[in-house]
């Protein structure tokens, strides 16, 4: 059965990627640099995108990047056709490439970083632990929310609350069905958040005595990678 209505998800962790072992701060900086490339003109952007995809292929991340772009295919198509019709082909291509680039660049970070490492990176950037922990939990929970959304759709369908309809009738009905999906979603998300709060508190969350077991430390390889990530962006801007 085809699962529909799946919300956008965080890419799954790619353990086999060589980027997996790099410092999360470096990977985040690399993603940020790549995202700046969206401001480049069309010819340079095309070169950068091609180079980026080649680098992602080398790091075994091409699949996750393309999947992220594929998830927004309808948005891309809509923008492409709209811009082409209203302005011209050049702008349509440029805008589509920019959106595709933005969708793909942070895969470098999210597909190679665990929520725990994400939290450590935030802590090392001086964010207080309670906020860093909350953000890393949010990062971790995005896919769980996606699973719950699917489960709610199935449960409503099973009780006949989401009939299979086609065409405009289906669209109108789906607007009406939103309440049958969103109320359980809000209830479940609230319950999960509350249960997590209880579980964390019962294990001493917010203790002033906390000592982190792991700490991040930049290795020479991390510095080299950071240099390799920043240089091409600067070069393209300069040239």
């Amino acid at each position: 059965m085809k699962r529909r209505g799946k919300p956008t998800r965080v890419p799954a962790l790619v353990e086999s990627s060589p980027l997996r072992r790099f410092d999360p701060r470096v990977k985040f900086a690399a993603s940020l640099c790549a995202s700046l490339a969206v401001m480049l003109p069309l010819d340079k952007l095309a070169i950068f995108l091609a180079a980026y995809l080649a680098v992602m292929a080398a790091f075994r991340l091409l699949g996750p990047v393309l999947r992220q772009i594929w998830r927004i295919r309808w948005v891309l198509l809509f923008l492409f056709l709209g811009d082409w019709w209203l302005v011209g082909l050049d702008l349509a291509v440029l805008v589509s490439l920019r959106i595709a680039m933005l969708a793909g660049v942070f895969t470098l970070f999210f597909a190679t970083t665990t929520p725990g490492e994400f939290g450590l990176a935030l802590e090392s950037l001086r964010l207080p632990y309670r906020y860093a922990f909350s953000l890393s939990l949010t990062f971790q929970s995005l896919n769980l929310l996606g699973d719950e959304w699917i489960a709610i759709r199935e449960a409503q369908k099973s009780r006949g609350a989401l009939p299979e309809l086609r065409g405009w009738k289906s669209l109108l009905r789906q607007v009406g069905d939103l309440v049958s999906l969103t109320v359980p979603m809000v209830v479940l998300a609230t319950r999960r958040a509350w249960a997590i709060t209880e579980a964390a508190t019962a294990r001493g969350f917010d203790s002033p005595r906390r000592v982190a077991y792991r700490r991040l430390a930049m290795s020479p390889a991390d510095w080299v990678f950071l240099l390799c990530a920043v240089t091409p962006t600067l070069f393209l801007w300069w040239v």
């Binding site: 209880e198 203790s207 005595r209 906390r210 000592v211 077991y213």
Partner: peptide, 29 residues
């Protein structure tokens, strides 16, 4: 220590090891 009914809702970390370490870190050991 309090163990809750629904185990899936008690999982806080990304790995089994980190799940156990979460509570140990908060003891300040």
């Amino acid at each position: 220590g309090l163990l809750f009914q629904n185990p899936a809702f008690q999982m806080l970390a990304h790995s089994v090891e980190e799940e156990i370490l979460f509570g140990l870190e908060n003891l300040g050991l």
